[in-house]
Design a protein around this nucleic acid. Sequence first.
DNA 1: ACAAAAGTGTTCTGCATACACCCATGC
DNA 2: GCATGGGTGTATGCAGAACACTTTTGT
Lengths: 236, 236
Amino acid sequence: MTATQDTHTYENGEKIYVATDCIIFGFDDGILKLLVFERRVKPKQGELSLIGSFVSPNESVTEAAQRVLKEITGLENIFMEELKCYSDTSRDDGARCISIAQYALIRIGEYDKELVKKHGAHWFEVDKLPKLVYDHGDMVQDALERLKLKSRFYPIGIELLPKQFTIPQLQKLYEVIHQKELDPRNFRKKVLSLKLLIPLDKKDKSSSKKGAYLYKFDYKKYKKLEEKGFNFSIFK
Amino acid sequence: MTATQDTHTYENGEKIYVATDCIIFGFDDGILKLLVFERRVKPKQGELSLIGSFVSPNESVTEAAQRVLKEITGLENIFMEELKCYSDTSRDDGARCISIAQYALIRIGEYDKELVKKHGAHWFEVDKLPKLVYDHGDMVQDALERLKLKSRFYPIGIELLPKQFTIPQLQKLYEVIHQKELDPRNFRKKVLSLKLLIPLDKKDKSSSKKGAYLYKFDYKKYKKLEEKGFNFSIFK
DNA sequence: ACAAAAGTGTTCTGCATACACCCATGC
DNA sequence: GCATGGGTGTATGCAGAACACTTTTGT
């Protein structure tokens, strides 16, 4: 047993492999999807896994995750947050390895399709997800829970929508994340009352004949409000 | 750069020291306290740090934290939750080391005083906290934020109170955590309306002449409600 | 003309807020 | 008998929940 007093002396420490795995969510026309990756090499060749990497000695865990994300999707500066650390001794069948999982929310229209294809990654609907290797399935479940919780109080769902979006689109997103139907009148009222959507006087006609007004999210205003301790909740 | 496809092949992985640090909160008669530890050995001898340990190859991070907590306080089966991973390359001045911080909430009357003394640990009031080594100060700030957030929606504050407690005690706890005065009538009404406190027909006279009724928290009932997706919030 | 989705307004109810007084007891 | 903290009740307002109809336009 490593004696408590000895942290930061290193003598009693043994090194461990440290990895990060990314749970990459996308929202495609009413459906929540996950970017997973088909393993091309042994072990577990042909099986599905999250996209991950070892953390190298000259980068933080966050940097490692950002590197991975860029490598696969070409995207930078996107929403990504630490989920939790997976460290069961039995989680892996090789050497001892812990993984700090991160979940990312991307706009599904914006990633680099060539890169994704090149790496053998595919989008799967979250509710039709096949088995993933090791504890990656748990990671996805935990990430879904987190998304559900966090999106109630923080506008992170916005990161999954195109920069310009309609209110029905936003509603559908919340319905999918929370697996719950919402009343369109009350939803609209609540969302608009927050005064965080900027109307654009443009319509999106892709999903109806009448067309729905486009909005964009007022990041600046939200940031100011957040600093003042502002807090909202979409449902009770 | 570690290629993404190679996770779980280990060839490209380099090992890193993995530690865990515990942010141990206690609530002592209206004051929120933190258990910190005076370093007896070099480096940083005499400075204050959180209690931590390296994670050994045959234990999970959680197990390591539980081991540390037991070693220092004698306590087992207490509330502890992962906070986050601290992994900046510059966070330490020795070898590369990441730390997965965990915060724990203990009943300050129940720990083993001999053990704590033996290890050179002391309680400090959180708002009079001296400088801690490395990024431990950040960890404490982050833990306080988390405690604030989580205690609004989950009854984790209970873990800081004696098993039998009064409503004024509970209120004081919330006031300290949220740094906000609460109306005693409304607080009482809200708390009792949840029907999660079992009245004990006993009074605690330690803080008033009249004495205040003692209650205990109905863990079983809460667990059932939680499974059904029940959700409360102490404030708006 | 009609189907399909977008958009609008009102009522009701419950919960958070604000607020003032009596109670029990040790000193 | 008085100071100290504990305990109770009520009025108000706001925000969430429930709910039905009109608008636009492509076909």
